[in-house]
Simulated scan of single mutants.
Amino acid sequence: MTDACGLAPAGLFSNAERAAVYRAIRERRDVRGQFRPDPVDPATLRRLLQAAHDAPSVGLSQPWNFILIRDAALRGRIHDAFASANAEAADRFPDRKALYSSLKLEGILQAPVNLCITCDRTRGGAHVLGRTHDPATDLYSTACAVQNLWLAARAEGIGVGWVSIFRPDDLRGLLHLPDHVVPVAYLCIGHVTELYRQPELQSRGWAARLPLDELILEDRWPAS
């Protein structure tokens, strides 16, 4: 029941509902090589896009757009752009180059759905409520949309992989993005049979999750 201002009662989710939310957060994985070829049901994909669109945004500006990349030839060119940037990136880890090169960091050609989520830096006009003193908040808002989609996908049994190893101008050119639109996330989406029990980079020995207690501060940054 709502009042005349459109307010609704706030309250806890049920135990099962809360457990499901925390499970999706805890079990979300960045999927690279576990995609199955079967297509994602259009209704399911629509739910994932709606979850992304339901994200919070500064000043309710909703700066995101969702570009579905279906053309096989275009995907091939995007994969080539990734491969070129990835070869460059490998040289930046000379002591770990063999491990780096063994990691599969994308599923561009394997995943049945490729999606680029962009941020329109002009949406909402010159002055957006809440963005007047930090212009980057539109980018943060778009990242919230990405996370919403990712968590919804986990609940649907759908894998998502974020491909971040691109030269931005390469992706911008391939997708014909105007100057005021930023590619925030290139996502590979599809059904998966298995997921790593812990983040893949942790399983493969690249990094480990930091203990939460080491990251909690009180009132200010500690003196050095």
Rank of each mutant, 00 (worst) to 15 (best):
L99Q: 08
A145G: 13
E106P: 03
I108K: 04
A152Y: 10
A153P: 03
A126F: 05
A152S: 10
Q147M: 15
D138A: 15
G159I: 12
A155E: 00
I108Y: 02
V113Q: 15
R96N: 10
Y100V: 05
T132M: 13
I108V: 09
D138V: 07
A111Y: 13
N114L: 10
W162L: 07
L139D: 12
T122S: 05
A152F: 12
E106L: 05
Y140L: 15
C119P: 09
C116G: 00
R96V: 04
N148D: 01
C119E: 07
G159Y: 12
K97W: 08
H133F: 11
A98F: 03
A145L: 13
G161W: 00
T122H: 03
K104R: 12
G125V: 13
A111N: 12
P112W: 02
G125F: 12
P112V: 10
H133L: 10
L99F: 05
V163M: 11
A111H: 14
R96P: 08
P135M: 13
G161L: 00
N148A: 00
Y100W: 15
H133C: 06
D95L: 04
T118F: 14
N114C: 02
T132G: 12
K97H: 05
V113R: 10
H127C: 03
D134P: 02
T137K: 09
A143I: 11
H133Q: 08
L115W: 01
D95C: 02
L99H: 06
K97F: 06
P112S: 11
L139T: 11
S141K: 10
L139M: 15
T142V: 06
H127W: 04
P112G: 05
L151R: 00
A153G: 13
N148H: 07
S102C: 10
D95M: 05
P135D: 12
L105G: 08
A152K: 06
D134I: 09
T118W: 13
G130T: 13
I117N: 09
L99A: 08
A136C: 09
L151Q: 04
I158E: 02
S141D: 13
T142A: 02
S102T: 14
T142N: 03
I165C: 02
I117H: 06
L103Y: 07
P94Q: 12
A153Q: 10
S101P: 04
N114M: 04
G107H: 07
L99V: 03
L99T: 02
L105T: 04
W162R: 08
L149I: 14
R121G: 03
V163N: 11
A136K: 05
T118A: 11
I108D: 00
D120G: 05
D95K: 06
A145D: 15
S101C: 07
D120H: 11
T132R: 15
H133V: 09
K97V: 14
H127L: 08
P112N: 02
L99D: 09
L105M: 08
L99P: 03
T142H: 02
L129V: 09
C119A: 10
C119S: 06
W162S: 06
P112K: 13
S164E: 11
N148Y: 00
G107N: 03
T122A: 02
D138C: 06
D138T: 09
Y140R: 06
L139S: 07
P112C: 09
D134A: 11
I108E: 01
L99Y: 03
L151E: 01
I108T: 05
I117A: 05
C116Y: 01
Y140G: 07
L151F: 13
T142L: 01
V160W: 04
D95S: 07
G125Y: 14
I117G: 13
